[in-house]
Design a protein around this nucleic acid. Structure first.
Lengths: 198, 198
DNA sequence: GATGAAATTAGTTCAAG
DNA sequence: CTTGAACTAATTTCATC
């Protein structure tokens, strides 16, 4: 089974609004039974559409250390590893990679601590240039767009609706549109495993 | 009662990581009983530290427009309203304001749709300059800062620790540090109500 | 895919320290 | 502020459609 239908969509909306809402409530809202809701939520999580259940905290109410926004120009080709290393750094919260070899990230640190973070975590070879700005405010509005309706094939981007291929690799399941894309992703995964074990 | 202690802090961290984690689990982690956890979560919600329980959805799995990162230089003084208006825009997901009159946001839109968004939502008066970059990858690990320990007065910003003033206005409770700040916020609220009803 | 009933777990209330 | 115990409610399992 694959693709998101109206029921899934509505479940996502309801959980976005209150992630602790009971499955009974949701079941009533969407006209299904609690076990069905439970099962769908599980599937949505497995497929990766639901990344996590989380909390939205009003940081303006808390006395916090400074938050900075860092704009980073990296050595072309090193974007992927930079994103990976930054994500693992404890002070770093949000990492955004753009197509022009830039990586923007939000971290909880002093402006001057960033230098240390960059040289220690990334090393000078991968960083070309950077700019640090103090963050004064942040907002996040989780929302689904109206058009948001189908899952797309992780390989080719086509809609996955109707097909029934999924590939379990490591601890994740990937939805694909056809068997050709399925073997494509399997090959990629194997190559990565190979590389990692050498 | 007021102020956030280590136990509250740890509860927030645990819920951020998994907002559906059971209060029993949390109770065990923090060395308290389930009713205590339940009560503290309720208090944190009332006081406004917890804004909502929500879901983090992987939008890149869903068929929708590309994701862009927009760097905006705004007219000094208009930062607050710009943040507000952007937050309300449906395509905009994450807004970050920096201290140098810059606003950076992540939106789901075509690069060229951003122009429309900016001129329609913000108007030319508030936007000085902008730059749009296509996002290719993003990670987000919400986190609280280590120092996060006290609630601050919503009026004057001083720590509210030790005092015991709170003001119920509308459907929210505001924590303040003293009776003077309490009447300050009441006045503001009344003025707003007045304005809204006219 | 979906469900009702049963079994298991979770959450809340409350009297008491 | 906290808790254990009792009670109420939610979730999962599973046999069945």
């Amino acid at each position: 089974m694959t693709g998101i239908d109206d029921v899934d969509y509505r479940i996502l909306e309801l959980l976005m609004d209150d992630a602790r809402r009971s499955y009974r409530d949701i079941a009533e809202e969407v006209g299904r039974s609690p076990p069905t809701v439970s099962e769908r939520v599980e599937r949505l999580t497995e497929v990766g559409v639901i990344e996590r259940f989380t909390l939205d905290v009003d940081r303006s109410r808390l006395v916090e250390g400074p938050t900075v926004l860092v704009d980073l120009a990296v050595q072309p080709g090193s974007e992927a590893t930079v994103v990976e290393d930054l994500t693992d750094a404890p002070a770093v919260e949000h990492v955004i990679r753009t197509v022009d070899a830039a990586v923007v990230f939000v971290a909880h640190a002093n402006e001057r601590d960033v230098e240390e973070l960059l040289s220690e975590t990334l090393g000078d070879e991968r960083v070309r240039e950077y700019r640090v700005r103090l963050v004064s405010d942040r907002t996040w509005e989780p929302r689904l767009d109206e058009e948001t309706l189908a899952i797309e094939c992780v390989v080719c981007g086509k809609s996955v609706e109707g097909s029934d291929e999924s590939v379990a690799l490591g601890d994740r399941t990937y939805e694909v549109c056809c068997s050709s894309c399925a073997s494509e992703i399997k090959d990629q995964y194997d190559a990565l495993q190979q590389a990692a074990s050498e």
